[in-house]
């Protein structure tokens, strides 16, 4: 049975609980025989999400008239995100960086990997995402993890990376 590593964007969407594809993937996981134990996140994912929400919170406080996301909404998001991370931490499913993952991360740092944002603009994959990918490639106990992430052409340029796109599973 394969085990899975959720990308930060997928975790971000799951926390919203708005029936986005990543959440539907998680719901469909039961029917595929997956257990909560089979699903992990990288140690950088809480940091990535907390940073994004802190940026949004700072903006909302500085520009209450124009912000798209009011302070109470962001605060609720932060609380819900922290509960979600606690759940993973309690069951030892946040995978820290060890020397093998660090070594793989070093390989990826030397690679130019390009993803596209929602507007179709190219951007270089940031180092935190490369940690996630390195974590999926090394996995746990020498069993690599399947990286659950929305489609990016750049995934194909990463040797040996197994990717599952939640949209594909949900469509089926």
């Amino acid at each position: 049975m394969s085990r899975y590593l959720l990308s930060s964007q997928c975790v971000f969407d799951i926390i919203k609980r708005r029936n986005l594809d990543a959440e539907l993937w998680l719901e469909a996981a039961d029917a595929r025989g997956l257990y909560a134990d089979d699903i992990c996140i990288s140690a950088v994912t809480p940091m990535t999400i907390q940073w994004q929400l802190e940026q949004a919170l700072a903006y909302a406080r500085a520009h209450p008239e124009t912000t798209e996301y009011p302070v109470p909404v962001i605060k609720e998001f932060i609380d819900q995100a922290n509960r979600f991370f606690e759940e993973f931490a309690r069951h030892d499913r946040i995978i820290p960086m060890d020397h093998k993952i660090a070594s793989k991360w070093g390989d990826l740092l030397d690679m130019k990997i390009t993803f596209q944002d929602q507007d179709g603009r190219d951007y270089d994959v940031p180092s935190a995402t490369k940690v996630e990918i390195a974590t999926a490639l090394i996995g746990r106990g020498d069993f690599p993890l399947v990286y659950v992430d929305y489609h990016q052409d750049g995934h194909a340029s990463i040797p040996n990376l197994a990717v599952e796109n939640p949209e594909d599973i949900v469509t089926k």
């Binding site: 799951i14 926390i15 919203k16 609980r17 708005r18 959440e23 998680l26 719901e27 996981a29 039961d30 997956l34 257990y35 909560a36 134990d37 089979d38 699903i39 909404v73 609720e76 998001f77 819900q80 509960r83 979600f84 759940e87």
Partner: peptide, 13 residues
């Protein structure tokens, strides 16, 4: 626990 149990504590935002 089933995978979807991870959603149990989350409410729609």
């Amino acid at each position: 626990r089933p995978a979807s149990a991870l959603l149990a504590q989350l409410k729609p935002m």
